[in-house]
Amino acid sequence: MAECIIETRGVTRSYGEICALKPLDLQVRDGEWLAVMGHSGSGKSTLLNLLGGLDRPDGGSLVVGGVDLATLGEDGLARFRRERVGIIFQQHHLIPHLSAVENVMMAQYFHSVPDEAEAKVALQRVGLGHRLRNRPGELSGGEQQRVCIARAIINSPRILLADEPTGNLDHASTVVVLELLSELRAEERFTIVMVTHNQEVASRGERTIFLDDGILVREELSGR
């Protein structure tokens, strides 16, 4: 049994009157692919934001990659985000006037120093070796998402958080992206926590948890 890379105990998060996450206990093994499902407002994205250090819990303990996020100050949290996690969003958030390789180098810049050769290789790994100098507007949705994947993995995160990564993609592109994530995970051995509405997408994971109204209501192990 691999050690836990994510461990939450009684984590809660409210926004004013609305309790987005009720006390949640969750363990994720190192290298596991966890899918998070639930309908809108169930607390999926809140959970992802907490795991990625984008938000702070109101209560409970949240240990990610051996780091207790509650103990980190703003600088520590920023460093945690830079060095420990990669995030893929449904909206790509690519910088429109930069080329694909420059978008990836941007992530390197905020992490440490840019290295073009490494950024190019990352794009080659996601199958975009021929689209290095294209801007996001010149790429298809699937290709844009692959740039996002290259951007998310460029800094070798131990955890990849994906928020509806295929939400905007057609079926063919969805398959390509999921295959890619699979391959990369096998190579890099990072942990994936992926929020999705799509049962088929969720089934790529090893385990799926279901949230409802901020409560973990069910979990399923996938056959894969």
Partner: peptide, 14 residues
């Protein structure tokens, strides 16, 4: 041999 680690070290030197 890990690019990110290498860059982090380089960044710390810089």
């Amino acid at each position: 041999r890990r690019g990110a680690e290498r860059r982090l070290l380089m960044a710390s030197y810089i």
